[in-house]
């Protein structure tokens, strides 16, 4: 069971309190109805599924109930950092090789 730091509660809490919510930083278009088929495909269907660093959304379901973003290494299953929804994708990661 993982320990996840909720950036709103500012505490590490057990995984049981959280729920994964898919990949992060996939913005919904402000002009949704006008999206091309290709753009909609990228927005809705295409996910990166990397071996290594993934940016993903989590919800502190049984805590503050807020959605936030996390950076996790899919190989080691380690969380590198978490940050609030709406904050930009971090340019530098703590402890990352590159």
């Amino acid at each position: 069971m993982l320990l996840i730091r909720c950036p709103y509660c500012e505490e590490e809490r057990p995984e049981l309190e959280f729920r994964n919510a898919g990949e992060a930083h996939i913005a919904r278009s402000a002009n949704m109805a006008g999206e091309t088929d290709d753009d909609f495909e990228k927005f809705f269907f295409i996910r990166s599924n990397p071996k290594g660093i993934i940016y993903e959304r989590w919800r502190h379901m049984h805590g503050c109930a807020r959605f936030f973003n996390a950076v996790r290494d899919t190989v080691s299953d380690k969380f590198l950092m978490t940050y609030k929804a709406g904050e930009p994708k971090p340019a530098k990661l703590p402890g990352a090789a590159k």
Binding site: R19, A21, R28, R57, R59, M61, A65, R66, F67, A85, G86
Partner: peptide, 13 residues
């Protein structure tokens, strides 16, 4: 409820 919260918190904050 989760679906509504998701949109409210992340797409339409």
């Amino acid at each position: 409820m989760n679906h509504m919260e998701d949109y409210l918190q992340t797409e339409f904050p």
